[in-house]
Amino acid sequence: TTVKLGDIKVTFDNPEKAKKYAQKLAKIYQLTVHVHGDTIHVK
């Protein structure tokens, strides 16, 4: 599962960890989390 934020891409083996990371980023940057299959976009 890949978390994308602009040019930053972080890949996790564990989808749950990816989701938590995405939510953490979203909170920090006051953005929202969008899940598209294996990719989680923070924008």
Results as ranks from 00 to 15, higher is better:
27 K>V: 09
23 Q>E: 14
31 L>Y: 07
5 L>W: 15
2 T>S: 07
27 K>I: 10
26 A>F: 04
27 K>A: 13
16 E>T: 08
30 Q>R: 11
22 A>N: 00
18 A>N: 00
11 T>A: 07
36 H>N: 11
11 T>K: 11
4 K>H: 12
14 N>T: 10
9 K>E: 14
6 G>W: 12
18 A>F: 03
39 T>P: 01
19 K>I: 15
43 K>F: 14
43 K>M: 14
31 L>A: 09
36 H>I: 15
5 L>E: 02
18 A>V: 01
15 P>I: 10
5 L>P: 02
43 K>W: 13
12 F>W: 03
41 H>D: 07
30 Q>P: 03
37 G>P: 03
30 Q>G: 15
42 V>M: 08
40 I>K: 01
6 G>M: 07
29 Y>F: 12
11 T>V: 14
10 V>S: 03
10 V>C: 14
18 A>Y: 02
6 G>Y: 09
13 D>I: 09
9 K>A: 12
3 V>T: 02
16 E>H: 09
20 K>A: 12
14 N>Q: 06
4 K>S: 08
38 D>Y: 06
21 Y>M: 04
23 Q>G: 05
42 V>D: 01
32 T>S: 10
7 D>S: 15
10 V>D: 01
42 V>R: 00
19 K>P: 00
8 I>Y: 15
7 D>K: 15
10 V>A: 04
14 N>W: 05
21 Y>S: 00
30 Q>M: 09
27 K>H: 11
19 K>M: 15
11 T>Y: 15
38 D>G: 07
33 V>M: 08
11 T>W: 15
42 V>S: 01
37 G>T: 03
42 V>N: 02
4 K>Y: 14
20 K>R: 12
6 G>F: 11
26 A>K: 04
18 A>E: 00
29 Y>H: 07
19 K>F: 15
2 T>H: 09
42 V>E: 01
36 H>S: 12
35 V>G: 02
12 F>D: 00
16 E>D: 10
1 T>I: 12
6 G>E: 04
17 K>C: 15
20 K>P: 00
32 T>Y: 08
27 K>T: 11
38 D>C: 12
17 K>Q: 12
4 K>E: 07
12 F>M: 02
23 Q>K: 10
4 K>N: 06
15 P>S: 07
40 I>G: 01
41 H>E: 14
18 A>M: 02
29 Y>A: 03
39 T>C: 12
38 D>S: 11
1 T>G: 04
31 L>D: 01
12 F>R: 00
9 K>L: 14
5 L>R: 04
30 Q>V: 05
8 I>A: 05
12 F>C: 07
40 I>P: 01
28 I>S: 05
21 Y>H: 03
37 G>D: 06
6 G>D: 04
6 G>K: 06
43 K>P: 03
14 N>V: 05
7 D>W: 15
29 Y>L: 10
10 V>M: 10
16 E>V: 09
5 L>V: 12
34 H>A: 09
23 Q>T: 08
33 V>E: 00
13 D>L: 11
33 V>Q: 01
21 Y>G: 00
22 A>Q: 01
39 T>G: 03
34 H>L: 10
6 G>A: 05
24 K>S: 08
19 K>S: 08
23 Q>F: 11
36 H>M: 14
13 D>P: 08
37 G>F: 06
1 T>E: 02
1 T>R: 03
36 H>L: 13
42 V>W: 03
28 I>T: 07
20 K>E: 12
7 D>L: 14
39 T>H: 07
29 Y>S: 03
11 T>N: 08
18 A>I: 02
17 K>M: 12
24 K>Y: 15
10 V>F: 13
23 Q>C: 15
14 N>M: 05
9 K>Y: 13
8 I>H: 15
16 E>P: 01
33 V>G: 00
37 G>H: 05
38 D>V: 06
18 A>S: 01
20 K>N: 09
1 T>H: 07
31 L>N: 01
5 L>F: 15
35 V>A: 06
28 I>P: 00
7 D>G: 13
24 K>G: 06
7 D>Y: 15
24 K>F: 15
22 A>K: 02
17 K>W: 09
12 F>E: 00
10 V>L: 12
35 V>F: 12
29 Y>E: 03
25 L>T: 01
31 L>T: 06
42 V>G: 01
24 K>I: 13
26 A>W: 04
15 P>K: 09
19 K>C: 15
24 K>Q: 10
20 K>Y: 08
31 L>G: 11
4 K>W: 15
5 L>T: 03
35 V>D: 08
41 H>G: 02
30 Q>N: 15
24 K>N: 09
18 A>C: 06
41 H>F: 13
13 D>A: 11
